[in-house]
Protein backbone atom coordinates (compact mmCIF):
# COMPACT_ATOMS: atom_id res chain seq x y z
CA UNK A 1 0.00 0.00 0.00
CA UNK A 2 2.74 2.43 1.06
CA UNK A 3 4.72 1.56 -2.03
CA UNK A 4 1.68 2.08 -4.19
CA UNK A 5 1.23 5.54 -2.73
CA UNK A 6 4.84 6.41 -3.35
CA UNK A 7 4.60 5.27 -6.97
CA UNK A 8 1.46 7.32 -7.34
CA UNK A 9 3.25 10.36 -6.01
CA UNK A 10 6.17 9.96 -8.36
CA UNK A 11 3.87 9.52 -11.34
CA UNK A 12 1.90 12.62 -10.33
CA UNK A 13 5.01 14.75 -9.91
CA UNK A 14 6.39 13.53 -13.23
CA UNK A 15 3.09 14.27 -14.92
CA UNK A 16 2.97 17.77 -13.44
CA UNK A 17 6.52 18.48 -14.54
CA UNK A 18 5.71 17.27 -18.03
CA UNK A 19 2.63 19.49 -18.08
CA UNK A 20 4.62 22.52 -16.96
CA UNK A 21 7.14 21.89 -19.72
CA UNK A 22 4.36 21.45 -22.30
CA UNK A 23 2.64 24.71 -21.35
CA UNK A 24 5.93 26.54 -21.35
CA UNK A 25 5.66 26.98 -17.62
CA UNK A 26 3.17 29.80 -18.25
CA UNK A 27 1.15 29.16 -15.11
CA UNK A 28 4.22 29.39 -12.90
CA UNK A 29 5.16 32.82 -14.21
CA UNK A 30 1.67 34.32 -14.45
CA UNK A 31 0.83 37.35 -12.35
CA UNK A 32 -1.51 36.24 -9.57
CA UNK A 33 -4.99 37.82 -9.65
CA UNK A 34 -4.33 39.53 -6.32
CA UNK A 35 -1.14 41.13 -7.67
CA UNK A 36 -2.71 42.69 -10.74
CA UNK A 37 -2.59 46.50 -10.58
CA UNK A 38 -4.94 48.40 -12.85
CA UNK A 39 -4.00 52.10 -12.94
CA UNK A 40 -6.22 54.73 -14.57
CA UNK A 41 -8.09 52.03 -16.43
CA UNK A 42 -4.89 50.62 -17.94
CA UNK A 43 -2.99 47.40 -17.57
CA UNK A 44 0.00 47.60 -19.87
CA UNK A 45 1.93 44.57 -18.69
CA UNK A 46 1.06 41.12 -19.99
CA UNK A 47 -0.21 38.71 -17.33
CA UNK A 48 2.06 35.94 -18.60
CA UNK A 49 4.86 37.58 -20.53
CA UNK A 50 3.87 35.32 -23.39
CA UNK A 51 2.18 36.67 -26.52
CA UNK A 52 -1.51 35.92 -26.75
CA UNK A 53 -2.76 33.57 -29.46
CA UNK A 54 -5.72 35.09 -31.33
CA UNK A 55 -6.86 31.72 -32.68
CA UNK A 56 -7.03 30.16 -29.21
CA UNK A 57 -8.51 33.47 -28.02
CA UNK A 58 -11.38 33.24 -30.47
CA UNK A 59 -12.25 29.79 -29.12
CA UNK A 60 -12.21 31.07 -25.57
CA UNK A 61 -14.24 34.10 -26.66
CA UNK A 62 -17.13 32.02 -28.03
CA UNK A 63 -16.93 29.05 -25.61
CA UNK A 64 -20.00 29.04 -23.40
CA UNK A 65 -18.08 27.56 -20.49
CA UNK A 66 -15.06 29.78 -21.08
CA UNK A 67 -15.35 33.48 -21.92
CA UNK A 68 -18.89 33.25 -23.28
CA UNK A 69 -18.39 36.84 -24.46
CA UNK A 70 -21.31 36.43 -26.90
CA UNK A 71 -23.67 36.14 -23.94
CA UNK A 72 -23.59 39.94 -23.79
CA UNK A 73 -21.81 41.21 -26.90
CA UNK A 74 -22.64 41.23 -30.60
CA UNK A 75 -19.61 40.49 -32.77
CA UNK A 76 -19.78 40.30 -36.57
CA UNK A 77 -16.56 38.31 -36.85
CA UNK A 78 -18.24 35.38 -35.05
CA UNK A 79 -21.56 35.71 -36.90
CA UNK A 80 -21.52 31.96 -37.61
CA UNK A 81 -22.20 31.44 -33.91
CA UNK A 82 -25.88 31.66 -33.03
CA UNK A 83 -27.34 34.04 -30.47
CA UNK A 84 -25.33 37.13 -29.68
CA UNK A 85 -26.44 38.98 -26.57
CA UNK A 86 -27.02 42.71 -26.46
CA UNK A 87 -26.48 43.61 -22.82
CA UNK A 88 -23.01 44.98 -23.55
CA UNK A 89 -21.83 47.07 -26.51
CA UNK A 90 -21.06 45.47 -29.88
CA UNK A 91 -17.40 44.51 -30.12
CA UNK A 92 -16.96 45.28 -33.83
CA UNK A 93 -14.11 47.76 -34.01
CA UNK A 94 -13.29 47.46 -30.30
CA UNK A 95 -9.55 47.52 -31.10
CA UNK A 96 -9.99 50.85 -32.87
CA UNK A 97 -11.73 52.37 -29.86
CA UNK A 98 -9.44 51.13 -27.07
CA UNK A 99 -5.73 50.79 -26.48
CA UNK A 100 -4.48 47.26 -25.75
CA UNK A 101 -3.68 48.24 -22.15
CA UNK A 102 -7.27 49.42 -21.63
CA UNK A 103 -8.75 46.30 -23.24
CA UNK A 104 -6.61 44.08 -21.01
CA UNK A 105 -7.81 45.98 -17.93
CA UNK A 106 -11.45 45.67 -19.04
CA UNK A 107 -11.17 41.91 -19.50
CA UNK A 108 -9.31 41.43 -16.21
CA UNK A 109 -11.67 43.51 -14.05
CA UNK A 110 -13.97 45.93 -15.81
CA UNK A 111 -15.30 47.30 -12.52
CA UNK A 112 -11.93 48.98 -12.04
CA UNK A 113 -12.34 50.64 -15.43
CA UNK A 114 -16.06 51.44 -15.80
CA UNK A 115 -17.02 51.54 -12.13
CA UNK A 116 -19.02 49.31 -9.81
CA UNK A 117 -22.27 49.58 -11.77
CA UNK A 118 -21.08 47.64 -14.80
CA UNK A 119 -22.58 44.20 -15.27
CA UNK A 120 -19.43 42.80 -16.88
CA UNK A 121 -17.70 40.19 -14.74
CA UNK A 122 -13.99 40.41 -14.02
CA UNK A 123 -12.43 37.48 -15.87
CA UNK A 124 -9.20 37.47 -13.87
CA UNK A 125 -10.28 38.35 -10.38
CA UNK A 126 -10.93 36.30 -7.28
CA UNK A 127 -11.16 38.75 -4.37
CA UNK A 128 -14.19 40.61 -3.08
CA UNK A 129 -16.80 38.18 -4.40
CA UNK A 130 -19.82 36.91 -2.41
CA UNK A 131 -21.23 33.40 -2.17
CA UNK A 132 -19.14 31.93 -4.96
CA UNK A 133 -20.24 28.38 -5.76
CA UNK A 134 -17.68 25.98 -4.35
CA UNK A 135 -16.86 24.63 -7.79
CA UNK A 136 -15.45 28.07 -8.66
CA UNK A 137 -14.22 29.29 -5.29
CA UNK A 138 -10.73 30.79 -5.41
CA UNK A 139 -10.68 30.42 -9.19
CA UNK A 140 -10.74 33.02 -11.91
CA UNK A 141 -13.16 32.71 -14.84
CA UNK A 142 -10.24 32.57 -17.27
CA UNK A 143 -6.60 31.70 -16.76
CA UNK A 144 -3.94 34.37 -17.25
CA UNK A 145 -3.01 32.94 -20.65
CA UNK A 146 -6.67 32.71 -21.71
CA UNK A 147 -7.02 36.43 -20.91
CA UNK A 148 -3.98 37.21 -23.06
CA UNK A 149 -5.39 35.01 -25.86
CA UNK A 150 -8.81 36.71 -25.75
CA UNK A 151 -7.07 40.09 -25.76
CA UNK A 152 -5.05 39.05 -28.82
CA UNK A 153 -8.29 38.08 -30.54
CA UNK A 154 -10.15 41.27 -29.59
CA UNK A 155 -7.20 43.27 -30.93
CA UNK A 156 -8.01 41.84 -34.37
CA UNK A 157 -11.47 43.47 -34.25
CA UNK A 158 -10.61 46.67 -36.08
CA UNK A 159 -12.84 48.91 -38.14
Amino acid sequence: MALQFKTCGIVAVTALTALAVLTGGASAEAVKPGDVKITDGQLAKSLTGKAGDPVAGKKTFVGRKLGNCLACHVNKDTSKQQFHGEVGPALDGAASRYEPAALRAIIVNSKQVFGEQTLMPGFYREAGLNRVNKKFKGKTILSAQQVEDVLAYVLTLKK
Binding site: V87, K111, L119, P121, G122, L129, N130, R131, V132, N133, F136, K139, I141
Partner: peptide, 13 residues
Protein backbone atom coordinates in the same frame (compact mmCIF):
# COMPACT_ATOMS: atom_id res chain seq x y z
CA UNK B 1 -26.61 42.09 -3.72
CA UNK B 2 -24.08 40.92 -6.30
CA UNK B 3 -23.08 37.29 -5.85
CA UNK B 4 -21.16 34.49 -7.51
CA UNK B 5 -18.03 34.33 -9.60
CA UNK B 6 -19.84 36.45 -12.21
CA UNK B 7 -20.58 39.07 -9.52
CA UNK B 8 -24.15 39.81 -10.59
CA UNK B 9 -27.36 40.71 -8.80
CA UNK B 10 -30.98 40.07 -9.80
CA UNK B 11 -31.24 43.78 -10.64
CA UNK B 12 -28.32 43.71 -13.09
CA UNK B 13 -30.31 41.61 -15.54
Amino acid sequence: TRVGQLDMSCAGC
